[in-house]
Amino acid sequence: METCIIYTPLGYAKIVGDVDGITSISILNTEEKVTDIIPEVLEDCAIQLKEYFDGSRKQFSLKLNPQGTDFQKKVWEYLEQIPYGKTCSYLELSKALGDSKAIRAVANANGKNPIWIVIPCHRIIGSDGSLTGYAGGLHRKQWLLNHESPFKQMSLF
């Protein structure tokens, strides 16, 4: 497995993967040394994340290899289908997966998503539109949703 650290507007991110694909992208809550030379198998991921944060990329094209249960992978595959700038509730996600009573299991799988941003678990919100749990912190979830919003807030000051 190869690893690199990149800097994003939300902090340092760690990318892990190999020729079989990206296995994890995680946001770190500590200051880290940015990797000087990014391993070749991770270069495209680092570039695409930079483009996402620059606003020039709305869809990722990466080989992914997340590790999890079959159910978790099914949830993560569905998350990848939620378009940039759109959100979905846990209930809608549960219904789409065929069981409206599986909200807790779906929420648990969502929370264990190992590939930050690329598998967009930040696009899942409460049925009432509220921001609910996010492993990277609700402030980051809000930032990501604002970043993807077609309605940009303008500051007067």
Rank of each mutant, 00 (worst) to 15 (best):
T87C: 07
T87P: 00
T87H: 02
T87F: 09
T87N: 02
C88N: 12
C88W: 13
C88R: 10
C88M: 15
S89D: 03
Y90Q: 11
Y90A: 14
Y90H: 10
Y90M: 11
L91S: 12
E92P: 01
E92Y: 07
E92M: 10
E92Q: 12
E92H: 08
S94A: 15
S94R: 13
S94C: 11
S94G: 10
S94P: 13
K95I: 15
K95P: 15
K95N: 15
A96N: 14
A96L: 15
L97Q: 04
L97I: 07
L97K: 03
G98C: 05
G98T: 03
G98L: 05
G98P: 04
G98E: 03
D99G: 11
S100P: 13
K101R: 15
K101C: 06
K101D: 14
K101A: 07
K101F: 14
A102L: 04
A102P: 10
I103H: 04
I103D: 05
I103W: 07
R104A: 07
R104D: 07
A105E: 11
A105L: 11
V106W: 07
V106S: 05
V106P: 08
A107P: 10
A107Y: 13
N108L: 06
N108P: 01
N108D: 13
N108H: 12
A109R: 00
A109F: 09
N110P: 06
N110C: 15
N110Y: 13
G111A: 04
G111I: 09
K112I: 04
K112N: 12
N113Q: 07
P114D: 01
P114T: 04
I115A: 09
I115R: 07
W116D: 11
W116S: 13
I117S: 02
I117D: 05
V118I: 14
V118H: 01
V118M: 02
I119L: 01
I119C: 07
P120L: 04
P120A: 04
P120C: 05
C121H: 14
H122C: 10
R123C: 05
R123H: 07
R123E: 10
R123T: 09
I124Y: 10
I124R: 09
I125E: 00
I125P: 03
I125D: 02
G126S: 09
S127L: 10
D128Y: 00
D128I: 00
D128L: 00
S130W: 00
S130E: 10
S130K: 02
L131S: 00
L131M: 04
L131A: 00
T132M: 02
T132Y: 01
T132N: 02
T132W: 01
T132R: 03
G133I: 00
A135V: 08
A135D: 08
A135W: 13
A135I: 11
G136W: 08
G136F: 09
G136N: 06
G136K: 06
G136E: 11
G137V: 05
